[in-house]
């Protein structure tokens, strides 16, 4: 069994790493990581906007942002993928490749979840920070921009990183709409070999494990470092880590 697995890896490592790249679309781990990075990087500004809208004094901003967050939190990612897959080509009037569909889905989904992280970070700061910034003559937007957000986002770094790890795990669902990423590559290998499904999917699981475990380790390290650097005792209400 072990030598089977080694043989599969040594014959297919390039497919697992970059998919069929020079001859086809980029796939494998490379595509998984690019998808996740694009997803989280593009979702981040959106999540800050949603978070600011959710703590806004104006109902007109608060209500739709809250509705959006609950909508995204209450519906399976798979359904959101189907919606984007169906609606975006209609709205844009053009074909949208699977990769772009997946990025859009991740931005919507992660934007909503990340906004809860950002909101928790803002709300965990002592009220005195805002009061002091306002007393110094900053307007509300400037107080947010220069006093609240820098601190909140710094404190939230570990949570943002664990959101990134969730994103990596969520890119696997791209398999359902045939996005060429790591899970897709493993299924290609499995369909070609047919006789060694256990080895193939074990390799797949261990690869994800290696990637996510090392990032979890970094997140824990970062958390410890930030906790020691931050003198304040305020505990941070961690938002739900998800499966």
């Amino acid at each position: 069994m072990l030598h089977n697995a080694i043989a599969i890896v040594s014959e297919n490592w390039l497919l697992l790493l970059i998919g069929q790249y020079p001859n086809g679309p980029l796939g494998g781990i490379a595509a998984t990581l690019i998808l996740s990075v694009l997803g989280i990087v593009l979702a981040f500004p959106l999540s800050v906007l949603i978070a600011l809208a959710r703590i806004s004094r104006w109902r007109l901003l608060r209500a739709p942002a809250t509705a959006l967050v609950y909508l995204v939190r209450g519906v399976p990612l798979l359904m959101i993928i189907f919606w984007v897959y169906f609606l975006f080509p209609l709205l844009l009037g053009a074909n949208v490749p699977g990769f772009a569909t997946m990025v859009c889905t991740l931005v919507i989904y992660e934007g909503a979840f990340l906004s809860e992280v950002v909101r928790a970070g803002i709300e965990a700061l002592p009220r005195g920070q805002m009061d002091a910034a306002r007393a110094l003559g900053h307007s509300y937007p400037r107080a947010m921009r220069y006093v609240i957000l820098p601190q909140a986002l710094y404190n939230m770094l570990p949570a943002i990183l664990s959101q990134f790890i969730s994103t990596i795990k969520e890119t696997t669902l791209g398999y359902v709409i045939n996005v060429p990423e790591l899970t897709f590559a493993a299924n290609q290998i499995n369909n070609r070999l047919l006789t060694k499904p256990f080895e193939v999917f074990l390799i797949l699981a261990l690869t994800y494990y290696a990637v996510c475990w090392s990032l979890t380790w970094v997140a824990t390290w970062l958390e410890r470092r930030i906790a020691t650097r931050r003198a304040g005792p305020a505990p941070i209400g961690m938002m739900a880590a998800r499966a």
Partner: peptide, 23 residues
């Protein structure tokens, strides 16, 4: 716990249904 939290749920399902079932 480490295994189940660091491997995507979909991959775990595939490993069970396609992989472990075949053994």
């Amino acid at each position: 716990i480490s295994y189940h939290r660091n491997v995507p749920t979909l991959v775990q399902l595939m490993l069970w249904y396609f992989g472990i079932a075949s053994l």
